[in-house]
């Protein structure tokens, strides 16, 4: 299991790096897909098969397909000479620095934490993780769930109005 974790980690980091290093936008979109596969691997190692399938189905199968379509329609074969202005550069540097600070803070404070709650691995495997996620979505987390669905509905209506114009 440990070996698998390291294999997935290497794939994830490598593909994430390649996303920003390759010049061709379509190739970098495909590296995002590879990265999502590695993440799905992590979910499976965590016994969350449902999340793994959703990761592939929603992200790799739908969202990146839309991105690929946009790249194809705009015919962005090669990224044009990127404009390096001061504004962009400063935002980039600040966000990278913030990320590093976050990582250091996390590594310092987080010790070995034990999982809490009644849902241990054995219980999850017995009931099935799809059932448990469904139960939580429709009872404890029903409000955030509905808010998220309204957000998506707003996006759909917005897209429709823009398309009509």
């Amino acid at each position: 299991m440990d070996a698998l974790f390291y294999i997935f980690s290497i794939i994830a980091i490598f593909s994430a790096l390649m996303v920003i290093l390759v010049k061709n936008p379509l190739t970098s979109a495909l590296y995002v897909v590879l990265c999502f596969f590695a993440l799905a691997g992590f979910y499976i190692l965590l016994n969350m098969q449902f999340l793994a399938a959703m990761q592939i189905l929603v992200y790799a199968g739908a969202i990146i397909v839309l991105i690929v379509l946009v790249i194809m329609l705009l015919n962005l074969a090669k990224a044009k000479d990127t404009i390096k202005d001061f504004h962009q550069l400063s935002v980039g540097i600040i966000s990278v620095l913030l990320l590093f600070v976050e990582i250091i803070l996390y590594l310092n404070t987080a010790g070995e934490t034990k999982p809490t709650g009644i849902y241990t691995n054995a219980v999850i495997n017995k009931i099935g993780n799809t059932q448990i996620i469904g139960q939580f979505l429709f009872t404890k987390y029903v409000f955030p769930f509905e808010v998220a669905s309204i957000l998506l509905l707003v996006a759909v209506i917005g897209a429709y109005i823009f398309a009509k114009k």
Binding site: L26, V33, Q49, A53, M54, L57, A60, V65, M72, T130
Partner: peptide, 25 residues
């Protein structure tokens, strides 16, 4: 026997599109 068999099938069938799109491009 995966306990999410149907989702596995749907996830894979949603990837078939890449071969077509990449090939065409």
């Amino acid at each position: 026997n995966v306990n999410i068999g149907i989702l596995f099938i749907l996830a894979l069938s949603s990837l078939g599109i890449y071969g077509v799109v990449i090939g065409g491009w």
